[in-house]
Design a protein around this nucleic acid. Sequence first.
DNA 1: TCTGGGGTCCTAGGACCC
DNA 2: TCTGGGGTCCTAGGACCC
Length: 454
Amino acid sequence: MDAFFAAVEQAAKPSLRGKPVVVGGLGGRGVVATASYEARRFGVHSAMPMAQARRLCPNAAFLAGRFEAYRQNSEIVMGLLRELSPLVQPLSLDEAFVDLAAGPYGPALAEADHATGERLVLALGEDLRADIHRLTGLTGSVGAAGSKLMAKIASERAKPDGLVLIEPGQERAVLGPMPVRALPGIGPATEQVLRRAGLTVVADLAEAGEAELVALLGRAHGAGIHQMAIGLDERPVVADQDAKSVSVEDTYEVDLADRERVLREVEALAARCVRRLRAAGRSGRTVVLKVRRFDFSTLTRSETLGGPTDDEAVVIATARRLAEQVDITGGVRLLGVGVAQLADYTQEDLFAQALREEAAEQPEAPGAEEAVREPEAVVVRRWLPGQDVRHDEFGPGWVQGSGVGRVTVRFETPWSGPGRVRTFAVDDPALEAARPLPLRRPEGADGAGEDAGE
DNA sequence: TCTGGGGTCCTAGGACCC
DNA sequence: TCTGGGGTCCTAGGACCC
């Protein structure tokens, strides 16, 4: 999908179409997740610090992500891919490999002569792109080739809103002049190593030979890069596999300085991590704590349990133990808690059982819970730029901005024209958070009064 | 106002086992 | 009575991807 997050925002918010849109973390330490093509013209790109993006393109709309909306549209697109083949390998919400040979067009492709097969692949690709646009209003790009490597490179050449086929046999001719960074698996570090060895384009890698690449990059990496450089990629398309770890992390606006605060945050992260783990119906054996210090140095500490658990108390206790042992001098900018070595179900969980028995033996003093209860929390609603809302009188809209007790909302929907802006008190009872609307008007929907549904 | 969040895979050393 | 060798598990770190 082309500039996926930003494109979903533009499709959902008519007033942003044709304008620079930047989606990402809006806090002081946020980075850009996706920039629309209009914003890219100002030099804004993924992974750029948001502060820099604001300097480059101050007039862009800066929006927090709406992952529920992205997931909805991703599912529509993945559904279309599954019509082409049961063998679909999603790489993220907006990208997937499809093995056409394993699907309904496989036999026809196998029997066709070269020219016929090529016409069929091109037709399937264009039909797919048309279906994507029809069902979501979004554009996607298709790369077709004889391997995952070349299909990916073809799709990058096709962007935005295009289709590129690389014919089998043309691999080395296409790859040769490309910079080494074009190969998946070559990032900044590997690029530097290769550049110091005088290797800058893919043809240099092919010429260098496997032995030299292995010497430079190590066994697995070197051999893999060499295979790709000579246009060979036998990796099969594999249907999406179960996750191997689940983790949650937070970067704090201000570095955390004291141990008690760190421990409280670790507990909260552990609880969130367990919620996700349980929602996925999994359990895990290894608890991982991640700490990024004030100077961006990052460390991890892990502990492997006797068996898999999905018990909140066990994960919290383990994460706390790990956090008590790390040096936090100078401050901590990020904390994370993860669970790895996942299993599909919880085996007899002796740890959780022991912990509960221990707790049962030492009942709290009666009334203790009452005594420590916090005063009634004042729920201050946070209105995030981009967020979906609904007003009793004006209907569906989205948060354009908020501050000094006010929130500005633009009232428009994916199917309306550009809408008007109104401002409310942040605690206006007529205003409430809402679910994302589908980008295409559902059949039978009768206008602005229609609910997004469950 | 420098650098997110969620992942995967690989390497390397030490413990431990046969 | 100087020294093995191979496999697996655990821990930590790092590169990379979207």
